[in-house]
């Protein structure tokens, strides 16, 4: 297996690593607070991409039994035929957690803007110093 094919087999890995680095960069390096939150969302979704990749199986179908109650006897199910449901369940929860945190963070941003009139971190720090000094 050559390098190119190896990279293709690990395509999602490459993808989530790149995305996570973008997210971390935005969270730490950007000065605008909304940008930080955009970075935070990218960061969380890249982790979700990683875990969802764990659930994939080659040539497998989605984890729903299609003829469940149709033909009387329960169908015989083979684990290799269906994608792994467990990581998907975990990531459903993670997405929900992510949106709750985003909501709280955005609410904080509204308060910050009302109180200090800016969402740029360096201006915010200046105003904080000014208000605490007086």
């Amino acid at each position: 297996m050559g390098l190119i094919e190896g990279a293709a087999g690990q395509l999602n890995t490459v993808g989530y690593i790149v995305l996570m680095m973008i997210g971390i960069y935005a969270m730490t390096g950007k000065s605008n607070l909304v940008k930080k939150l955009v970075g935070m969302n990218i960061f969380q979704w890249s982790i979700i991409l990683f875990v969802v990749s764990l659930s994939a199986k080659r040539d497998a179908s989605i984890p729903i039994v299609l003829d469940g109650h149709g033909g009387g006897a329960a169908p015989v199910l083979d684990a290799a035929q269906y994608a792994n449901p467990l990581p998907q369940v975990l990531m459903l929860t993670a997405i929900v957690v992510g949106v709750a945190i985003t909501g709280v963070a955005l609410a904080l941003l509204l308060r910050i803007h009302r109180q200090f009139g800016t969402l740029e971190e360096n201006e915010l720090l200046e105003r904080l110093d000014a208000s605490s000094g007086s």
Binding site: V38, I62, V96, V99
Partner: peptide, 26 residues
Amino acid sequence: LGAVDVAFTEAAVGAGVTTVLFVITV
């Protein structure tokens, strides 16, 4: 990747709720 439920949630949350909340903030 075969994760339809996750994709559905993401469509509802990522493109829906998160965007709406971000837009209100902006």
